[in-house]
Design a protein around this nucleic acid. Structure first.
Length: 483
RNA sequence: GACCCUGUAGCUCAGUCGGUAGAGCAGCACCCUUUUAAGGUGAUGGUCGCAGGUUCGAUUCCUGCCGGGGUCACCA
């Protein structure tokens, strides 16, 4: 295999490392003082004394001189290494033994080359770390890239290499980090308290999904990885925390595709004495705040107008021209057939409606749109809407580009009602339902929960929309892959 | 879970209508004190994802498996 050749490269690089040591240099020094990051250094005037460090991304050796480009998080800068300008022996012992991918520090002075490229004329070169295993090629000229490291599998499996070579990839994750900071800013300014609730849970709940199971040896007990933070956050509302949020991982033991990773990041926030209407305003403000502050180039969320607001049942009736009534199950079935919507023949009424909704309506919600007033049957944690004969709940989902981005309720706080909903939900469908008998949560509700509005936003989906990325794997640093 | 596409050098790719493979870059040796996809000279580098089958002969055709991408299903 190629291993032989790769091994040749590796051993040759160990040899160079050895040469560097023989020249009296520490192969892995402990510290290097920089005067700034590269973008700061580039903004300085010619003649300024600087020191900077980074990874060697290109190198042109010419006997007793060499040009290299150093890269750090903020950019690239060219460095001119010349034998008689460096400290004695640095050129022969270090520069001659450098490879692409090595990490070095330089001290020197800002100058301009013949071709007017701002560069550092190095007066000292410090070796900092060896690239033993070669990096993918990355050459560019005038912004055009050659030999891109573009193999998705290799990029996901070697994210460090992806980040080094693909600037776009790095910038997505920088933006994601900024986005999460901004979310915290936004909620903190509204006096929200950030909290952490258990990931290992004896009973899972707050969503309908298959969980991951695990086991605690000492407690001799089965535990589940949470599928949502919802129920614990509500306990904190009951406890008087007033406004709480959590940003953290949820885990769902389901399929993997372009928009699903088994572990994903959720934001949930809950506000006492509030309801779904107010939460929709906060949500809209949050999204607009993020879009404004992130100065995005490719954002897929159109924030130029107020978000649309429509009603679930009205849309279903408008599209199908069938009255929303369980007695019309057959008519809706017929509608599905006529519109080649693929459903199980013995599907439940609510699943059928939801399928129609998702196929005929959701997919066309491109501009940000709040959908309000969901049927009770698919919303076991939401409060019943007044004057709806107990058929609707106070809930919205926010759709953008056909994606569900947020989900929100006026939280059900009547423990007796909640108990009944859990029980009827259980019989509604075949899903393993042991998680639904969350008696502890009911007991908590019995302590009294104020009226409360809650919202959940998938952080990965939000990233995809904000940065206009079409695969969840490109917004998660280490997405799940097979062995 | 189903279907479609895909897997050739470290990276990006070509190619063989079945006769064990090529390029650029990277790497190696030498030359080169302002280069920038640096340049020059020379020598390298591959069990063509894995396992079977058909065949005189397979990287190429067939089957299965594994990895990746995509469509769908699943997913409140």
């Amino acid at each position: 295999m190629s291993e032989k050749q790769l091994n040749d490269i590796i051993s040759s690089r160990y040899e160079k490392l050895n040469n560097i040591v023989k020249g009296g240099n520490d192969p892995y020094p402990y510290k290097f003082d920089r005067t700034g990051l590269i973008d700061e250094i580039i903004s300085l005037n010619i003649g300024a004394k600087v020191s900077c460090a980074g990874r060697i991304m290109s190198m042109r050796k010419m006997g007793k001189a060499a040009f290299i480009h150093l890269q750090d998080l903020t950019g690239k800068i060219q460095v001119y290494l010349k034998d008689n300008l460096l400290k004695p022996n640095q050129y022969d012992s270090i520069a001659r033994n450098l490879d692409l991918g090595d990490i070095v520090g330089v001290n020197g002075e800002i100058f301009e080359t013949k071709t007017k490229e701002l560069s550092i004329k190095a007066s000292s070169l410090t070796f900092l770390a060896k690239n033993i295993r070669p990096l993918p090629n990355s050459k560019e000229k005038d912004g055009e890239k050659f030999d891109l490291f573009s193999n998705k599998e290799l990029r996901y499996r070697n994210r460090h290499l992806d980040l080094i070579t693909n600037k776009e990839s790095m910038s997505i994750f920088i933006s994601r980090s900024k986005m999460i900071k901004l979310i915290r800013n936004f909620l903190d300014n509204l006096n929200y308290l950030e909290v952490e609730t258990p990931i290992l849970q004896p009973v899972y709940g707050g969503a309908l999904a298959r969980p991951f199971e695990t086991y605690h040896n000492t407690l001799d007990r089965k535990l589940y990885l949470r599928i949502a933070t919802e129920l614990y956050l509500k306990r904190l509302i009951i406890g008087g925390m007033d406004k709480v949020y959590e940003i953290g991982k949820d885990f769902r033991n389901e399929g993997v595709d372009r928009s699903h990773n088994p572990e994903f990041t959720m934001l949930e926030f809950y506000q006492s004495y509030s309801d779904v209407e107010e939460m929709s305003i906060i949500t809209e403000n949050l999204i607009k705040f993020l879009v404004e502050k992130l100065s995005l180039t490719k954002c897929a969320i159109d924030c130029s107008k107020p978000f649309n607001r429509i009603k679930y049942i009205e849309e279903i009736e408008r599209i199908t021209r069938i009255k929303f009534d369980e007695n019309n199950h057959d008519k809706f079935m017929q509608y599905s057939k006529n519109n080649s919507i693929d459903v199980d023949p013995d599907v439940s009424f609510f699943k059928l409606i939801d399928k129609i909704f998702s196929d005929k309506i959701e997919k066309n919600l491109i501009a940000p749109t709040f959908v309000f007033d969901y049927p009770l049957g698919i919303s076991p944690l939401a409060k019943v809407k007044k004057n709806s004969n107990g058929k609707l709940v106070e809930r919205f989902e926010l759709f953008v580009n056909g994606y569900e981005l947020a989900n929100s309720f006026s939280e059900l706080n009547d423990p007796a009602d909640q108990r009944e909903r859990f029980l009827s939900q259980k019989s509604l469908d075949d899903i393993e339902s042991n998680h639904l008998k969350d008696d502890e949560f009911i007991k908590c509700l019995e302590a009294g929960m104020p009226p409360t509005g809650g919202v959940g936003i998938g952080i990965d989906r939000l990233s995809m929309l904000l940065f206009n990325i079409d695969s969840i794997k490109d917004v998660i640093l280490f997405p799940i892959l097979r062995d």
